[in-house]
Protein backbone atom coordinates (compact mmCIF):
# COMPACT_ATOMS: atom_id res chain seq x y z
CA UNK A 1 0.00 0.00 0.00
CA UNK A 2 1.13 3.52 -0.85
CA UNK A 3 0.41 6.45 1.47
CA UNK A 4 1.10 10.04 0.47
CA UNK A 5 1.68 12.74 3.07
CA UNK A 6 2.12 16.45 2.45
CA UNK A 7 3.46 19.02 4.94
CA UNK A 8 2.94 22.68 4.12
CA UNK A 9 3.57 26.00 5.82
CA UNK A 10 6.31 28.57 5.57
CA UNK A 11 10.08 28.49 5.86
CA UNK A 12 11.34 28.32 9.45
CA UNK A 13 8.49 26.22 10.86
CA UNK A 14 10.31 22.93 10.43
CA UNK A 15 8.13 21.78 7.53
CA UNK A 16 10.96 20.07 5.65
CA UNK A 17 12.37 18.65 8.87
CA UNK A 18 8.92 17.22 9.75
CA UNK A 19 8.77 15.34 6.47
CA UNK A 20 12.29 14.10 6.99
CA UNK A 21 11.49 12.84 10.49
CA UNK A 22 8.43 10.94 9.31
CA UNK A 23 10.26 9.41 6.34
CA UNK A 24 13.21 8.41 8.52
CA UNK A 25 10.89 6.80 11.07
CA UNK A 26 9.13 4.79 8.36
CA UNK A 27 12.28 3.80 6.49
CA UNK A 28 14.83 3.14 9.22
CA UNK A 29 12.64 2.06 12.16
CA UNK A 30 9.37 1.22 10.46
CA UNK A 31 10.53 -1.40 7.98
CA UNK A 32 8.87 0.40 5.05
CA UNK A 33 10.06 2.11 1.93
CA UNK A 34 9.95 5.88 2.25
CA UNK A 35 11.00 8.89 0.25
CA UNK A 36 10.94 12.56 1.13
CA UNK A 37 11.04 15.46 -1.31
CA UNK A 38 10.86 19.16 -0.65
CA UNK A 39 10.12 22.46 -2.26
CA UNK A 40 10.93 25.94 -1.06
CA UNK A 41 11.84 29.34 -2.38
CA UNK A 42 15.25 31.02 -2.18
CA UNK A 43 14.35 32.70 1.13
CA UNK A 44 15.00 30.39 4.08
CA UNK A 45 12.48 32.09 6.41
CA UNK A 46 8.96 33.15 5.65
CA UNK A 47 8.53 31.90 2.10
CA UNK A 48 6.06 29.16 1.33
CA UNK A 49 7.45 25.74 1.92
CA UNK A 50 6.33 22.19 1.23
CA UNK A 51 7.61 18.78 2.06
CA UNK A 52 6.28 15.49 0.72
CA UNK A 53 6.61 11.94 1.97
CA UNK A 54 5.61 8.71 0.28
CA UNK A 55 5.51 5.57 2.43
CA UNK A 56 4.91 2.16 0.87
CA UNK A 57 5.43 -1.55 1.41
CA UNK A 58 6.46 -1.94 -2.22
CA UNK A 59 9.27 -0.18 -4.11
CA UNK A 60 8.42 3.50 -4.64
CA UNK A 61 8.61 4.51 -8.29
CA UNK A 62 7.13 7.99 -8.36
CA UNK A 63 8.59 9.87 -5.36
CA UNK A 64 6.27 12.87 -5.40
CA UNK A 65 2.85 13.27 -3.85
CA UNK A 66 0.02 13.22 -6.37
CA UNK A 67 -3.14 13.02 -4.22
CA UNK A 68 -2.26 13.15 -0.52
CA UNK A 69 -3.93 10.84 2.01
CA UNK A 70 -2.65 12.96 4.89
CA UNK A 71 -1.95 16.71 4.93
CA UNK A 72 -0.35 18.64 7.78
CA UNK A 73 -0.94 22.37 7.36
CA UNK A 74 0.71 25.17 9.30
CA UNK A 75 -0.28 28.34 7.45
CA UNK A 76 -3.40 29.87 5.93
CA UNK A 77 -1.64 30.25 2.58
CA UNK A 78 -0.74 26.57 2.57
CA UNK A 79 -4.32 25.66 3.48
CA UNK A 80 -5.74 27.70 0.61
CA UNK A 81 -3.23 26.26 -1.82
CA UNK A 82 -3.24 22.59 -0.91
CA UNK A 83 -6.42 21.55 0.83
CA UNK A 84 -8.30 21.15 -2.44
CA UNK A 85 -5.66 18.76 -3.82
CA UNK A 86 -6.18 16.23 -1.01
CA UNK A 87 -7.75 12.88 -1.77
CA UNK A 88 -11.45 12.53 -0.91
CA UNK A 89 -11.67 11.47 2.73
CA UNK A 90 -8.08 12.51 3.43
CA UNK A 91 -6.94 13.31 6.95
CA UNK A 92 -6.10 16.99 7.46
CA UNK A 93 -4.22 18.22 10.51
CA UNK A 94 -4.09 21.94 11.00
CA UNK A 95 -3.03 24.41 13.63
CA UNK A 96 -6.03 26.73 14.31
CA UNK A 97 -3.76 29.58 15.41
CA UNK A 98 -2.22 29.56 11.91
CA UNK A 99 -5.27 28.56 9.87
CA UNK A 100 -8.34 30.60 10.77
CA UNK A 101 -10.47 30.36 7.65
CA UNK A 102 -11.53 26.80 7.01
CA UNK A 103 -13.90 25.48 4.37
CA UNK A 104 -16.41 23.09 5.87
CA UNK A 105 -17.92 21.65 2.69
CA UNK A 106 -14.92 19.53 1.71
CA UNK A 107 -15.09 15.78 2.24
CA UNK A 108 -12.12 15.62 4.54
CA UNK A 109 -11.41 14.47 8.07
CA UNK A 110 -10.07 17.65 9.63
CA UNK A 111 -8.36 17.71 13.02
CA UNK A 112 -7.50 20.95 14.79
CA UNK A 113 -4.27 20.64 16.75
CA UNK A 114 -3.39 23.75 18.81
CA UNK A 115 0.28 23.03 18.26
CA UNK A 116 1.53 26.59 18.55
CA UNK A 117 -0.27 27.05 21.88
CA UNK A 118 1.04 23.75 23.24
CA UNK A 119 4.55 24.61 22.07
CA UNK A 120 4.35 28.03 23.71
CA UNK A 121 3.38 26.40 27.00
CA UNK A 122 6.40 24.14 26.71
CA UNK A 123 8.54 27.23 26.25
CA UNK A 124 9.34 27.36 22.53
CA UNK A 125 7.09 28.08 19.55
CA UNK A 126 9.62 26.51 17.21
CA UNK A 127 8.72 23.00 18.38
CA UNK A 128 5.10 23.31 17.16
CA UNK A 129 5.92 21.06 14.19
CA UNK A 130 6.92 18.25 16.55
CA UNK A 131 3.65 18.67 18.46
CA UNK A 132 1.89 18.29 15.10
CA UNK A 133 3.95 15.19 14.33
CA UNK A 134 2.92 13.68 17.67
CA UNK A 135 -0.74 14.24 16.82
CA UNK A 136 -0.21 12.92 13.29
CA UNK A 137 1.35 9.73 14.67
CA UNK A 138 -1.57 9.17 17.06
CA UNK A 139 -4.30 9.95 14.53
CA UNK A 140 -2.98 8.25 11.39
CA UNK A 141 -0.88 5.43 12.96
CA UNK A 142 1.27 5.65 9.84
CA UNK A 143 4.32 4.82 11.97
CA UNK A 144 4.66 3.67 15.56
CA UNK A 145 5.29 6.30 18.25
CA UNK A 146 8.53 4.48 19.13
CA UNK A 147 9.88 4.82 15.58
CA UNK A 148 8.80 8.44 15.42
CA UNK A 149 10.47 9.28 18.73
CA UNK A 150 13.76 7.84 17.49
CA UNK A 151 13.50 9.87 14.29
CA UNK A 152 12.71 13.05 16.25
CA UNK A 153 15.64 12.56 18.62
CA UNK A 154 17.99 11.98 15.68
CA UNK A 155 16.85 15.00 13.71
CA UNK A 156 16.82 17.84 16.23
CA UNK A 157 19.79 19.94 17.39
CA UNK A 158 21.85 18.29 20.11
CA UNK A 159 20.69 19.35 23.57
CA UNK A 160 17.07 19.86 22.50
CA UNK A 161 16.08 16.19 22.40
CA UNK A 162 14.25 16.29 25.74
CA UNK A 163 12.20 19.35 24.83
CA UNK A 164 11.31 17.93 21.42
CA UNK A 165 10.32 14.57 22.84
CA UNK A 166 8.11 16.37 25.39
CA UNK A 167 6.50 18.22 22.48
CA UNK A 168 5.99 14.93 20.65
CA UNK A 169 4.39 13.37 23.72
CA UNK A 170 1.97 16.28 24.24
CA UNK A 171 0.98 16.19 20.58
CA UNK A 172 0.58 12.43 20.65
CA UNK A 173 -1.68 12.58 23.70
CA UNK A 174 -3.75 15.37 22.18
CA UNK A 175 -4.17 13.40 18.96
CA UNK A 176 -5.12 10.23 20.80
CA UNK A 177 -7.86 12.07 22.73
CA UNK A 178 -9.22 13.64 19.52
CA UNK A 179 -9.27 10.30 17.78
CA UNK A 180 -11.12 8.83 20.80
Amino acid sequence: MRTEIRFAGFGGQGIIRSGLMLATAACIWGDKNAVQTQSYGPESRGGSCKSEVVIADEEIDYPKVDEPDIVMIMSQEAYNKYVSTAKKGATILLDPSMVTEVESSLHLKTYNIPATKIAQKLGKTIIANVVMLGALTAITKIVTPEAMKKAVAQNVPRGTEKLNLAAFKRGYEYGRQLKG
Binding site: T24, C27, A34, V35, Q36, K64
Partner: peptide, 9 residues
Protein backbone atom coordinates in the same frame (compact mmCIF):
# COMPACT_ATOMS: atom_id res chain seq x y z
CA UNK B 1 17.35 19.29 -7.91
CA UNK B 2 14.67 16.77 -6.95
CA UNK B 3 17.12 13.85 -6.90
CA UNK B 4 19.76 16.00 -5.16
CA UNK B 5 17.42 17.10 -2.38
CA UNK B 6 15.38 13.90 -2.13
CA UNK B 7 15.86 11.62 0.88
CA UNK B 8 15.76 7.84 0.51
CA UNK B 9 17.31 4.71 1.88
Amino acid sequence: EIIGHMWER
